[in-house]
Design a binder for these strands. Structure first.
Length: 361
DNA sequence: CTCCCGACTG
DNA sequence: CAGTCCGGAG
């Protein structure tokens, strides 16, 4: 991949491990330095085809697809998003009940705020396992590359990169950022003026590009109008931006502002922390139900120096060994400290009703 | 819960 | 080829 100046690499705390040598990079990237070209290069490959699957969801109760309750109740402090979310109270309760089961991994669960036994050995063990294989998840690959930009631009780039990186492979995110950069659209000003359709085409392969293009424009405008072209500097204000939730907000605080307000918890950190018995619901031995709950619990005992590195560490571990499905306990070196080792317990988001149910007849 | 997008997996 | 992946929002 040609790196034309900006080589930002967002802390892809999610996807990215898996290879994907896919021959398709971006076919038009021979655009080296025609800086003067005012027009935007549009993606012409693979047509975006709507799936138009005329699936008549005759079974609205989604028998499979059991997410792990993504939305959270208003757990403690600021951290939680925009306005007040009324929901969660009544409805999803039944679902949570189900997810809640099988949580006896608590033998070594940390007592409120107290560090679980051997956590240092566990971390060390994971580090070892990670170093042996080529960890694709390098955390701050950005600070070195992004530093070529003035602070303000760099922060904006970090914010946009974070937005684009969710649910998207690293190389894809990188390509999108590169295209935006080449077209001089990686600034609040330009982005605000740009066509939404143009942005959409430029970021194309990233996940949820349509929604992200919309969010990018809104974010650019907000940065312009409320923050003088800079990005919000607090967690609360970052959370107010469309498309920026707890996970990304912490990531941006860490990288863009170098101000560690909290741990960036994604599903890997969430799942593994629970498997290890590192966190539990307040006052219980139950697994935490939401990433935010995990974050709070983890922050109660994990030394602050580990707050940032814990993410890339567990993400890499979670993608290669402690996987959601069929974790590789057989090759894991810390099973002696893991209450969940060799248990089919699977992830926090258990998979109860699933294959057993009938498809569509 | 469901949708958003698409690439990958069993 | 249905199910997974996994962050955010409604």
């Amino acid at each position: 991949m040609p790196k034309t100046g900006f080589t930002f690499k967002p802390l892809s705390s999610s996807a990215s491990a898996t290879q994907v040598p896919s021959s398709d990079q971006n076919p038009g990237s021979e655009v080296t330095n025609n800086v003067s070209i005012p027009k935007v290069r549009v993606f012409t490959r693979k047509k975006r085809v709507r799936k138009t699957v005329d699936v008549v969801k005759e079974n609205p109760t989604a028998e499979n697809k059991e997410h792990s309750g993504r939305s959270l109740p208003d757990i403690e402090e600021f951290a939680y998003k925009k306005v007040d979310r009324p929901a969660l109270s009544g409805k999803s309760k039944s679902t949570f009940g189900k997810l809640n089961m099988g949580t006896d991994i608590a033998s070594s669960v940390a007592m409120e705020g107290k560090a679980p036994a051997n956590w240092e050995k566990v971390l060390e063990g994971i580090r070892k396992m990670r170093s042996s294989e080529d960890a694709p998840v390098d955390t701050m690959g950005c600070e070195k590359a992004g530093s070529v930009l003035p602070p303000k631009e760099r922060r904006f780039a970090v914010l946009i990169s974070s937005l684009l990186s969710s649910q998207t492979k690293d190389h894809v995110t990188h390509g999108a950022i590169e295209r935006l950069t080449q077209n001089h659209l990686l600034t609040p000003d330009a982005m605000d003026k740009a066509d939404e359709a143009t942005l959409k085409d430029l970021i194309y392969p990233v996940g949820f590009y349509t929604r992200k293009a919309t969010n990018m424009k809104k974010i650019a405008k907000l940065c312009l109008m409320k923050y003088d072209g800079d990005i919000p500097s607090s967690l609360e204000e970052l959370l107010l931006l469309p498309g920026i939730g707890p996970k990304m907000a912490h990531l941006v605080m860490n990288i863009a502002w170098n101000d560690v307000q909290g741990i960036c918890v994604d599903t890997h950190v969430h799942r593994i922390s629970n498997r290890l018995g590192w966190v539990s619901r307040p006052g219980t031995k139950q697994k935490t139900l939401y990433p935010e709950e995990t974050r709070v619990a983890l922050q109660q005992w994990l030394p602050k120096e580990e707050w940032v590195p814990i993410n890339p560490l567990l993400v890499g571990f979670g993608q290669t060994i402690c996987t959601p499905l069929r974790p590789r306990c057989d090759i894991c070196s810390i099973t002696e400290f893991c209450p969940s080792a060799f248990r089919e317990t699977s992830s926090p988001s258990s998979k109860v009703k699933k294959s057993g149910a009938r498809k569509k007849l």
